[in-house]
Design a protein around this nucleic acid. Sequence first.
DNA 1: AGCACGATTAACT
DNA 2: GTTAATCGTGCTC
Length: 210
Amino acid sequence: MCSLQIGSMNKTSLHQLPRNFFSRPTRIVAQELLGCLLVRHLNGHRLSGVIVEAEAYIGEEDLACHAKAGRTSRTQVMYGPAGFSYVYFTYGMHWMLNVVTESEEFPAAVLIRAIQPVEGVDVMQRLRGRKEIPDLCSGPAKLTQALDITRAQNGLDLCQLSSRIAIEPHTKFPSGTVSASPRIGLGNTPEPWKSKPWRYAVRDNPFVSK
DNA sequence: AGCACGATTAACT
DNA sequence: GTTAATCGTGCTC
């Protein structure tokens, strides 16, 4: 019986990133997430892609971070333990996937902005309306559409073995190949937050957002 | 109750 | 380069 359970386990879920990976300074987590594999289990399919772009949102002081409004029903997951998903709705039509970082009670998260598709490309294309591969997941709302991530995936524990969303170690991009630049789409966010170089992306990677 | 504004995308000119 | 689409959230009245 025990061996049956072990035999039925998904081997890959055994190397999900542990919670202590996420309970660290948000900018470190954002940089180290580049090269990791974002995995989505959907209807028996395994969809995945290498994270190539991510942004850090750090605390109530960061006026670009939703936690600037304090603890609300929307932001409360950011005040919880690291390693949980924070999924929110914006522009009346788009979903964004973040991973909570740092300590409990300190609200911070990393926005996953782009992945390079690896597994389940056919399923992603169906979900996206048969787009070409470079357009499948090259933006934060594109990848949630390609992976079918919405409100129902808010507050999931990505470190739990059976999680339908997980992050696994994969490749490592040398630090010289990673760029740091201002976060995208901040519009009316005041300085200095608007210009903080907290967006990390793999240089010259065609799967980064455009 | 009403309002302005999004951590965006796709489809224009 | 510009703009419509579209609605939850947080803030003001």
